[in-house]
Amino acid sequence: MKSEVFPFPARRDSPAIDQSGVEERAQRFCARSLKKESKMSALKLAVSMLDVTTLEGADSVGKVHQMCQKARQPLPGDPSVGPAAAVCVYPRMVSTAVKAVEKSKVRVAAVATQFPSGQMRLKERLAEVRYAVGEGADEIDMVISRGQFLQGEYRAIYEEIIACKEACGKAHLKVILETGELMTYDHVRYASDIAMAAGADFIKTSTGKVPIAATLPVTLVMLQAIEDFHERTGRMVGMKPAGGISNAKLALQYLVMLREILGTKWLTPKWFRFGASSLTNDLLMQIRKQESGHYQSGDYFTQD
């Protein structure tokens, strides 16, 4: 684990980001057009990259159980679709989820570190990580302390991530930057660089709990950070846009962007995830449409 930690990156080592340039470039991916077999394989890939998520106060054993069934078998009767990459739940629901996905490839991710705000002492936040891992979580989605970041305490962010990574043990660590609170692309880029240096396995845009979640341009900035990091260190880091990706068309635009920035090597659930709750059925409807040629109705797709 220690070997994956790189020196704390100085602010000036992160390149400047030009807002309009990034947004223009992101827009250009939207002009790409996927047809026929390329569309079909991209849709199926997207399903396999889903972190099917429920993060509500109302989450119950029943709700989580049903969601896990959907993750295991997104399109009943068609084993070529799915399973989803993981289910993502609060720590209390980890044991339920672990049981529900038993004997499947679906992994269990838990949000931790006082998700979504992170406003608690590090000691308690790390205890939460250990608890979730102890319950059987394969992956931990942590939040960084945005307040401290915005205060300029960058090194504290670096250190909290290193500490979380250690607390994770064998579990994979996804670091949520909450880009909607960092606001500028410059911040997002620097936070990405800090997270990767501190050993993050994934960097993730959002909690889904603030108004601005994942966007194509912010994801582009993070993908470029991953690209530069890989170029420099040889280490691959995963990417997870989360929140706001609610339809298949948009999901495919993310995949086109991913492929063009990081290459086909990253086109696997090992290195890319979608954090989404309502994307699944739209992907499935599009898959059916591609197969049958008919536009689909929600009545024919399960809502779990």
Binding site: R32, S33, L34, K35, K36, E37, S38, K39, S41, A42, L45, L255, R259, T264, L267
Partner: peptide, 15 residues
């Protein structure tokens, strides 16, 4: 996998 497959880096023709 055909060359047009997304995973192979392809786009199917989109005229």
């Amino acid at each position: 996998m055909s060359a047009n497959d997304f995973l192979a880096g392809g786009f199917a023709p989109a005229p």
